[in-house]
């Protein structure tokens, strides 16, 4: 039987990146069904503790679909989201989780294809890792 692709938790944002996820569906673009999204107001509102909690709960990867320069709350979003990733990386190293298992990319409201490609790639990378490990 085909092995289930690794589980990925996506933090998408209500006004910017989540619409891209919707658009991907509208365009019938496929990505692994083990990708699940939690909607937050802005990518700079994701807590490092949430990301760590996802790993604890068994998600293989976490992806922040960031607002980037499109953020309705201003440009500081980019820098603040980067900071969150940085802080989380430290926590991940402490727990021995490879930092590549947390990814971030700016996903604008019409970036459906970009999102789908990111998911396929990420899932592929994570799957390679688990097969190599076992």
């Amino acid at each position: 039987m085909e092995k289930d692709p690794p589980k990925i938790l996506v933090f998408s944002t209500e006004k910017i990146s989540d619409p891209a996820l919707d658009l991907a569906g509208l365009m019938k673009l496929h990505y692994p069904p083990t990708v699940h999204a939690v909607v937050v107001p802005c990518s700079s509102s994701v807590r490092p503790s949430w990301i760590m909690h996802a790993f604890e709960c068994g998600f293989a990867g976490v992806f922040i679909a960031a607002d980037g320069s499109d953020c309705p709350y201003g440009e500081t979003c980019i820098e603040k989201t980067a900071k969150i990733v940085e802080r989380t990386h430290v926590m991940m190293r402490e727990k021995g989780i490879p930092t590549e298992n947390l990814k971030m990319a700016a996903v604008c409201s019409v970036c459906a294809e970009l999102f789908v490609n990111q998911m396929r790639l990420f899932a592929g990378e994570l799957a390679d890792k688990t097969t190599n490990a076992t």
Binding site: D22, L23, G25, L26, K28, H30, H36
Partner: peptide, 24 residues
């Protein structure tokens, strides 16, 4: 959202789409 982010996005894999719907 089990349409845009589930049934439509995973129309190629109905069984897994069903499971995802349950999770969501």
């Amino acid at each position: 959202n089990i349409r845009e982010q589930d049934s439509w996005a995973h129309s190629d894999k109905p069984a897994q789409a069903t499971l995802k719907a349950i999770h969501l």
